[in-house]
């Protein structure tokens, strides 16, 4: 779906942006796809000198240099991956806001997945466990429970 969306958006943006007058462009591009790629990259690349800003958001001279380099590469026909790899080779993984998937970062994806899975297992366990619990309930507890439920249903569910 995402790929489809991406392709669609590129196709359409070409048709829209194609109509725009090229005059006054600060970063001139030959195609609208190039401009989109440039915008995407300059938002995803991090300025190493700044606090926590992408090169697109920062006014630092280094960010400006990096923007220029990205622009230059995009104009020369570089792909998304080529630009990212170029920057990573110089500034390390730090420079890209999308962390690499490897042994040391896999927990980013596996951790939440585990939480969700354990949570679901927990729910199933809970629902099944209480059915077993039926037998354990004493008569006294049953009475209390019935009274409590009664009280609630009288009050209405809200």
């Amino acid at each position: 779906m995402r790929i489809l969306a991406f392709v669609l958006s590129i196709l359409v943006s070409i048709s829209i942006l194609g109509a725009v007058q090229a005059q006054g462009e600060f970063y001139a591009f030959e195609t609208a796809a190039q401009e989109r790629l440039y915008n995407k990259l300059s938002k995803e690349l991090r300025c190493p000198k700044c606090q926590n800003q992408s090169i697109s958001d920062s006014d630092a001279p280094l960010a400006e240099d990096m923007r220029k380099k990205v622009h230059e590469m995009v104009l020369a026909g570089a792909s998304y991956n080529e630009v990212v790899d170029f920057m990573k080779a110089r500034y390390g993984d730090f420079v890209h806001y999308r962390p690499p998937v490897n042994a040391s970062t896999i927990i980013l994806w596996v951790g939440p997945l585990l939480v969700a899975l354990i949570g679901m297992l927990f729910i199933f366990g809970l629902v099944r466990g209480q059915k077993k619990g039926d037998v354990v309930l004493t008569a006294d507890e049953e009475a209390k429970l019935a009274a409590a439920l009664n009280k609630h249903s009288q009050k209405g569910s809200n």
Binding site: G92, F94, Y97, R98, P99, P100, T105
Partner: peptide, 16 residues
Amino acid sequence: VHQQLGLGSVSIGEPF
């Protein structure tokens, strides 16, 4: 944590 473990610096942002 990544830096503490001596694995270098990573950035985690919008794309992730």
